[in-house]
């Protein structure tokens, strides 16, 4: 009895989450997708390292850190772009995106140096 009620609850929760997320603006959804992409790429690299070994360790590190860094920057962008975040309401989305691009540039310059 309890089991079916808990699964029902989970279903209800999932539903409510989904309906709530459907209300999210499209630009935020894209950023979410982007974060997912970066995280998955990092995961795949970690799996590869687990199978093959960490021989070109620099390359592995730079690959993973590039993905993680991108994901973090994308999250930051999302925070700044989100209209419901009153804290950043002074910052225009264009300005936020420029920051995001600049930070990505700096990050990847460092990554490229580290790549070996």
């Amino acid at each position: 009895m309890g089991k079916s009620s808990s699964s029902k609850d989970a279903q209800a929760l999932f539903h409510s989450l989904r309906s709530a997320y459907a209300a999210t603006p499209v630009n935020l959804k894209i950023i979410d997708l982007y974060v997912g992409f970066a995280v998955f790429t990092a995961l795949i690299q970690v799996v590869y390292m687990a199978i093959v070994g960490s021989f070109p360790f620099n390359s592995f590190l730079s690959g993973v850190l590039s993905c993680v860094g991108t994901a973090v920057l994308a999250v930051c962008l999302r925070i700044q772009v989100n209209k419901e975040n009153k804290e950043f309401k002074d910052i225009a989305p264009e300005r936020a995106f420029a920051d995001f691009v600049l930070c990505n540039l700096v990050l990847h310059l460092v990554i490229m140096n580290f790549l070996g």
């Binding site: 997912g36 998955f40 790429t41």
Partner: peptide, 15 residues
């Protein structure tokens, strides 16, 4: 694995 790393990118583009 090279192919696999491209898959999330494709997923992102399709999404």
């Amino acid at each position: 694995f090279l192919g696999l790393t491209i898959l999330p990118l494709l997923g992102f583009l399709v999404g």
